[in-house]
């Protein structure tokens, strides 16, 4: 199982933003790096259908299901991802369209709050939470739907050091595979595979100990 990209192109406003991407992604932790404007976010958004390819196909495993059924997406700014005024209600939101019985909704919410040690935030107003707390709540909102894969677009840019470390620990414990776009190379150092995107193409693809130093060297030139 995993994501499969088959000759995927994305064209916007007559500009080719991603060209001819063919990949099979089965690793547990995959990092995506590259310069500003190179196409990382566009690439990531293909994973759960926020972006549709101009040509080529993106599939989860062998299924032709709606990608959103399998892939959870964490946005950079949790403020915009949290929809409801109260934590508990917001967690219920993602489950609404899945038509689960009420008891299961409650159970899942309790479980995810417990797993992320967020039970104390249950009845809090979302807009009063700190940045790190908001991000954890946004993550809980993704996890509660039990996705098979989770995408993160620059998850640590708004976090202080403590919250960043907390986030890294949480990420390490997630049972699902994750794809993380980040400019924070330390965050990706322990990953299984790194994709370096440049000008809408996969410039390098391999283990972090190969790809990251090469990327650093390139940036210093």
């Amino acid at each position: 199982m995993g994501m499969r990209f088959d000759r995927v192109c994305v064209t916007k406003a007559a500009r080719e933003i991603l060209s001819e991407i063919t990949l099979e992604l089965t690793e547990h932790r995959i990092g995506v790096i590259g310069n500003n404007g190179s196409g990382k976010s566009t690439f990531l958004r293909l994973f759960n259908g926020l972006e549709t390819p101009s040509s080529g196909t993106v599939r989860f495993g062998d299924t032709t299901d709606d990608l959103r059924r399998h892939v959870g997406f964490m946005f950079q700014n949790p403020d915009n991802q949290i929809v409801y005024p109260m934590v508990e209600e917001d967690l219920a939101f993602g489950l609404k369209s899945r038509k689960l019985p009420k008891a299961e909704v409650t159970e899942r919410i309790e479980r995810v709050l417990h797993d992320l040690s967020l039970t104390h935030l249950r009845d809090r107003l979302t807009h009063q939470l700190s940045g790190g707390e908001k991000q954890m709540v946004a993550l809980a909102g993704v996890l509660v739907t039990k996705p098979d894969l989770i995408c993160f677009d620059e998850p640590t840019t708004l976090l202080d050091l403590r919250n960043k470390m907390q986030f890294m620990r949480t990420l390490a414990t997630l049972p699902q595979p994750a794809v993380v776009v980040s400019h924070d190379l330390d965050l990706l150092a322990g990953f299984d595979r790194i994709l370096h995107i440049a000008d809408g193409r996969i410039h390098a693809d391999g283990r972090p100990e190969e790809v990251i130093p090469a990327y650093r060297a390139l940036c210093e030139m």
Binding site: L50, G72, F73, F75, D79, N80, Q81, V83, S97, R98
Partner: peptide, 16 residues
């Protein structure tokens, strides 16, 4: 911009 991003998040989080 916020409205755009929120609309997108709603799309990402719900199935319909």
């Amino acid at each position: 911009k916020t409205a755009d991003e929120v609309a997108e998040a709603i799309t990402a989080r719900s199935l319909d």
